[in-house]
Structures are given as structure tokens and as C-alpha cells.
């Protein structure tokens, strides 16, 4: 090993990375998203996707859903560091693949091509609640909701059917059954 000239210790062993969905309830005030995102960038955490909107206009509460990857130690740190922010009310955390949780992403897909191509495209999307939002002689705009990796696959499959543009949201999450996030 090359001799260290650093005043800092060598990095230790890296742990296994997991994907987690972190849900944060915050006061909907100026700069709150910058605080949350700045915490991630400042501490070197990863953001895979982000979805944020106000969910309780009366109390001014926004719900931020962040998909992130990290070692169990890093995920724990993310939750605790988020919890320290003044406008943060509560933080919930779920492993990707948790059976008790529903995750969904929405995608808008624009396809340009003849009727036959477009019909084939609709067939590809059949499993993912396709909604035709706009239709012309040459084009169609579809809305689908699915998991991230499912949308990835659909996008690959649609290439040959004239997919020209994609717009996707970050994932949002909700518990199954009557339970709510603690």
C-alpha cells in the first residue's frame, strides 16, 4: 500500500449499500427544500429521486419523499441529521422492496409514429395504467404509473415504437392497509 501522506485516517471498509425511501414532513417555508437537499449534498449522501409538495395547506406541511442509497450507518445518519433540522416534524424510512409500502412513480411519454406503432406502444404499457392525455394524427402522450425499474423497462421497450420524450416524477410512497406513517 502506498504510504499515507494525509493528516486524516485511511477510509475504512465500505459496507453494503441499500436503497431506502425517506419520507420527511416539513413546514412549508422559504428555503426548507434547500435545507434538506443541502444536508444531503453537504454530507455526501446520495439522492436518487426527490418528490415534494404541500400535503396539508391548513398547517402548511409539505411531504418530501427522497430515494437514497447508503450503508445502514449512513441511512441512520440521514434520518438523525434530518430530524435535527428545525422545520422537520417527522422522518420515516423504508427499505425498497418493503411489502407493506406502496411506491409509485409517474411518467409522461411522448410517442411519434403511425397508428399501428402507437397501438403497440399502448399494449406495452397495458400493465401500468396507461392514460392517453393527448392525441394527434402523428403522436400520442401517455401517462403511466409504476415502479422506477418498471418504467426503465417500458422506456427501453418503447424506443422502437417512436418514443421521443420522457418526463418522470420522483417516487412517492404510502403504507398499505389502515396504518399510517408513525
Amino acid at each position: 500500500m502506498a504510504k499515507s501522506k494525509s493528516a486524516y485516517s485511511d477510509p475504512g471498509k465500505k459496507g453494503k449499500l441499500d436503497t431506502h425511501i425517506i419520507v420527511v414532513w416539513v413546514d412549508n417555508e422559504a428555503g426548507v427544500l434547500a435545507r434538506v437537499v443541502g444536508l444531503f449534498s453537504g454530507r455526501g449522501y446520495n439522492i436518487e429521486s426527490l418528490a415534494v409538495a404541500e400535503v396539508d395547506p391548513k398547517r402548511g406541511i409539505s411531504r418530501i419523499t427522497i430515494v437514497t442509497t447508503g450503508t445502514p450507518q449512513v441511512i441512520e445518519q440521514i434520518k438523525l441529521q434530518l430530524g435535527k433540522l428545525v422545520p422537520v416534524h417527522k422522518v420515516a424510512d423504508f427499505m425498497r422492496g418493503d411489502k407493506k409500502i406502496i411506491f409509485k412513480e409517474m411518467a409522461l411519454l411522448k410517442l411519434v409514429g403511425n397508428t399501428s406503432k402507437r397501438n403497440k406502444a399502448l399494449k406495452v404499457c397495458k400493465k401500468f395504467n396507461p392514460v392517453v392525455l393527448d392525441k394527434t394524427q402523428k403522436s400520442v402522450v401517455l401517462q403511466i404509473t409504476a415502479l422506477r425499474r418498471e418504467i426503465d423497462i417500458v422506456m427501453g421497450d418503447l424506443k422502437k415504437f417512436g418514443l421521443v420524450s420522457v418526463s418522470r416524477t420522483g417516487a412517492v410512497a404510502m403504507t398499505r392497509g389502515s396504518e399510517i406513517f408513525k
Binding site: 428555503g31 434547500a34 435545507r35 435535527k84 428545525v86
Partner: peptide, 12 residues
């Protein structure tokens, strides 16, 4: 914006 990462909290 500048002091966000070096304070516990800040307000405008």
C-alpha cells in the same frame, strides 16, 4: 444561503 450549512438554523 451562505450560512445555512454553518448554523443550526437561520431566518430571513
Amino acid at each position: 444561503g451562505i450560512t445555512r450549512p454553518c448554523t443550526k438554523h437561520n431566518w430571513l
